[in-house]
Amino acid sequence: MTHHAHEHPPPAGDWQATLRSKGYRLTPQRELVLRAVERLGHATPDEILGAVREESQAVNVSTVYRTLELLEELGLVRHAHISDRAPTYHSAAAPEHVHLVCRECHGITEVSPAVVEPLVASVRSTYGFETDVGHLTVFGTCGRCAS
């Protein structure tokens, strides 16, 4: 088996190859869930279920949860905790980002990991701690709500 030097998952159109290479089939449910995640951007399992239900009534919430777990294991989706409710899923095809979440309007701003690099470097040098930047969420008030 050959391993590529790059860290990024294959482009979204290449799910089939990713799933097959790991011995999974791209079932219609898996494709519906993955398409919903990519279309919604950031979505909870319930929101994903709602989107999937528009195309198929044959999918229930436990199927969505199981599918999301599998897709995350395969590196096709990632999750972040950007509310105190359910985790929020987004496509792994998107570049890694930090989430800024406004407590007032609940807007989500994606920022480059470079923005928090001084924090990451400081935590690394002081504590020897490696930060999982893709899971980093900063809560506060956005510029619009603050003014």
Results as ranks from 00 to 15, higher is better:
45 P>A: 12
84 D>V: 08
93 A>Y: 07
134 G>Q: 03
103 R>P: 00
6 H>N: 10
127 Y>L: 15
69 E>W: 07
87 P>A: 12
85 R>L: 01
57 Q>F: 02
15 W>S: 03
145 C>I: 06
147 S>A: 14
90 H>I: 00
5 A>N: 10
99 H>A: 05
111 V>I: 15
59 V>S: 05
47 E>M: 05
138 V>S: 09
131 T>G: 01
22 K>M: 08
36 A>Q: 06
52 V>C: 14
109 T>Q: 13
133 V>F: 09
83 S>N: 07
119 L>V: 13
25 R>D: 12
85 R>P: 06
45 P>H: 07
43 A>Y: 00
32 L>N: 03
54 E>W: 01
24 Y>I: 03
143 G>R: 15
30 R>V: 11
2 T>V: 13
124 R>N: 12
46 D>N: 07
139 F>G: 07
147 S>R: 15
14 D>S: 13
65 Y>M: 02
64 V>W: 03
40 L>H: 03
86 A>M: 09
87 P>M: 05
38 E>Y: 02
67 T>M: 04
120 V>I: 15
88 T>W: 04
113 P>C: 06
53 R>P: 04
111 V>N: 10
103 R>L: 14
13 G>K: 10
89 Y>N: 11
81 H>E: 04
78 R>M: 01
126 T>F: 06
32 L>P: 00
56 S>T: 13
4 H>K: 14
21 S>W: 10
52 V>I: 11
96 E>G: 01
131 T>P: 00
7 E>M: 09
120 V>F: 06
101 V>I: 13
43 A>I: 01
140 G>L: 08
37 V>E: 05
36 A>H: 02
105 C>I: 06
133 V>N: 09
57 Q>I: 00
57 Q>P: 11
72 E>I: 01
124 R>G: 00
87 P>R: 12
139 F>T: 07
88 T>L: 07
60 N>E: 14
79 H>A: 01
140 G>E: 12
119 L>R: 04
1 M>H: 11
110 E>T: 08
13 G>N: 09
